[in-house]
Design a binder for these strands. Structure first.
Ligand SMILES: [Mn+2]
Ligand SMILES: [Mn+2]
Ligand SMILES: [Zn+2]
Ligand SMILES: [Zn+2]
Lengths: 140, 140
DNA sequence: GCCGATATCAAGAATTATTCCAGTTATCGC
DNA sequence: GCGATAACTGGAATAATTCTTGATATCGGC
């Protein structure tokens, strides 16, 4: 049950600015961690994974870097119930399927051409800015 | 901008047991608060609304009563991002539309006959136990 | 109605994720 | 290089929630 790993991204391949956010050394490393292993890590997971390469990065900085990237639309913050926030570099409209037996979180998309708003009974005049959905279950 | 109020439910109309959970005086009052004003209050909202009738109810008890009712499937716990949990007595499959201009949370249902799993690209073999969705936006 | 067993409750302490703060360091434009 | 600004660090503070411990209430059997 190996979770999907992506090819490591050398620091040189991450530009020094994305969507108007200066990509400092800390932000580049954090972003690379998210791209390499897309398992929706928490801020603390990121912190532990990065300790070897940046030994004096502080957890507060991990939080503020993640927050800055979320605010600039570079990554997304994902919440499951009351658990710690998780982070995801997949910017496509998608939701999450949480496999409760393995703990693995899978990205899930709508079938082509379908939008959530089309299948819902919305209050008249509703303008949707943002959609989030989560499924919990297992893989048989 | 009056939010929907429901007819007050006298204590006598709430049975002394629901789905195997003994409905103590505290639980009855809390449940009645949820039924009367279905605006998805937080535990603290419930606590403040109940203070006049049960002046020595503790906030910890509000939390444990709500949790007991959630565990017994009498009410549902709803989370928006990292905000405090909110509680909802609507047991039908539904999601939430958060109007960001008024702060009001509307219940939203699927159009008849539609299920979220039917419109998604799920991993093969996925068995869905639970679905949650949230929309953010405004009413024009 | 009384009694021990069990469930529930109250009040405050503890926990956990996250944010704030104050001082230091890095980067930018000139 | 220099002052201004942004970013970073480490520790303290915060907020929602849970835990703990000791009281109360309720239950079933007598
Ligand atoms: Mn986290
Ligand atoms: Mn709450
Ligand atoms: Zn994702
Ligand atoms: Zn609801």
């Amino acid at each position: 049950m190996v979770s999907k790993a992506f090819k490591p991204v050398p620091a040189s391949e991450i530009p020094d600015e994305i969507s108007g956010l200066r990509m400092t050394r800390q932000r580049q490393h954090i972003y690379r961690i998210l791209l390499q292993h897309r398992d929706h890590p928490t801020a603390n997971d990121v912190f532990m994974r990065i300790k070897d390469t940046l030994p004096n990065l502080s957890l507060a900085t991990v939080y503020t870097c993640l927050d800055a990237m979320v605010k600039h639309g570079i990554i997304r913050q994902v919440n499951f119930d009351r658990g710690p926030s998780r982070f995801c570099p997949n910017l496509a409209e998608h939701g999450h399927f949480h496999d409760v037996t393995t703990g693995i979180i899978h990205d899930v998309q709508f079938r082509p051409g379908i939008h959530l708003a089309d299948v819902l009974d919305l209050p008249p005049g509703a303008i949707i800015k943002n959609v989030e959905f989560t499924l919990r279950g297992q893989l048989s």
